[in-house]
Amino acid sequence: MSPLEVTLTHISRILSFKTDQLSLKQDIINHVFNWESIISEGSRQLVIPTLYSRLKSKDLLQYLPQDLQHYLAYIFDLNKERNNALLQEVKLISSWFKTKNIEHVYLKGAAMIASNYYEDIGERMIGDIDILIPRAQCQQAFDVLIDNGYTYAKEPTISPKYFEDKHLLRLASKDYIGAVEIHFKLLDKDQKALHPVHVLENKQFIEITNIPIPSVKHLLIHNVLNFQINDFGSFYNFIGLKNFYDTLVLLPHLELDDEKELFKNRHLKNNFNLGRLYFNDIPKPPTSLRLTYNTKVYLLKNKYQNFGFWHYKILSYIKLLKLVLHRTWFFLVNRNYRKDVLNDRQRIKDFIKSKL
């Protein structure tokens, strides 16, 4: 195995709910694990608090070096404090929306920390507070946040004037820790398996707090498709440990019929196919030539660093070229867009340079 695969395998053994605990303990005691590589990759993939939580749950923290124990505990405590603050913000936003009869459901990390699926609220790192709202009520929800002290998280660019995103402009407040995105769509590319109307219709309410979150089926599907489509997991053929951990947490709560339904979507199949390389907890999808090819390409990228680098670069250039061609055509046919682009040309130049 390549050094990266060894590191990912070690991390997955810590995160998994099906790891043989005795062998894991022996490997830690015998210094088989390269903790420097594990912390580096864990930081990059935002699973340091999760590693701490799983090691604690498995009663293995005591076998780590003292300085490493303290570091992991420090990161976990910081994240738990932040998540508690985010949860209070979630409750507050929900109360504002309920007063105005705005239908809503929290998504992704906000939904996960509001749920009871984790052993501890601190084990999941989250970024924004994402909220799905019926399209007809999105502007009203946006205005409610503005009225309560939120403003643009960054200066708006020209794109929203001409190209529809899946959410309204990102908002933030000096009084609260989390930025907020009001969604009317879930994915950059629509999928039959995850329609916004169905997610809203099948939402569940968390006991005591009454916070609305998606059903476990929709939470799991969105977790995977958000990574595969919005974060380009399928396009670049790579994995996300945080994404896989959420899948591990949600799978035991899924009905058997719903689990079988997952393999009707090619993005879900591809995600689970690569996940099986590291996690026995994840069900194996039916084999196919496409999945075999994706596995081989993924393993080659890990084994040969130069191949992985150029694979990513070529795909990045293709993605940028598609964007430039689409925008160039729009530039030629739309006079107002042409004028705005010329006025905003320096920012656009900087954006293109950053992608090259």
Rank of each mutant, 00 (worst) to 15 (best):
I158Y: 03
Q45M: 10
Q204W: 04
L225V: 02
N306Q: 15
E103H: 09
T247S: 01
P156Y: 15
L186A: 05
N237S: 09
Y74S: 04
R338V: 03
L107I: 11
Q45S: 11
H167P: 05
L78D: 06
I221P: 00
K56I: 03
I282V: 10
S173I: 02
I208P: 01
Y162S: 15
L320Q: 03
E259V: 10
K353M: 10
T157A: 11
F331T: 01
N336S: 09
L356V: 06
L320T: 01
L250N: 01
I239P: 12
S12W: 05
P160T: 15
T328P: 07
D130V: 04
L78E: 06
E81K: 06
Q191P: 05
F227P: 00
Y117T: 05
S37N: 14
R345Y: 06
E103V: 06
Y236G: 04
L187Q: 07
F330L: 09
Q21L: 15
L55D: 00
L225C: 06
L299H: 07
F244G: 00
E123Q: 10
L78N: 03
I39Q: 07
T9F: 14
R266P: 03
H10S: 14
A111L: 12
N230G: 08
N306L: 14
R338S: 06
L64F: 08
A110L: 04
Y117Q: 03
N116G: 14
N30L: 09
K18D: 12
F184A: 05
E164I: 09
L315M: 13
L51D: 00
L291W: 03
Y152W: 15
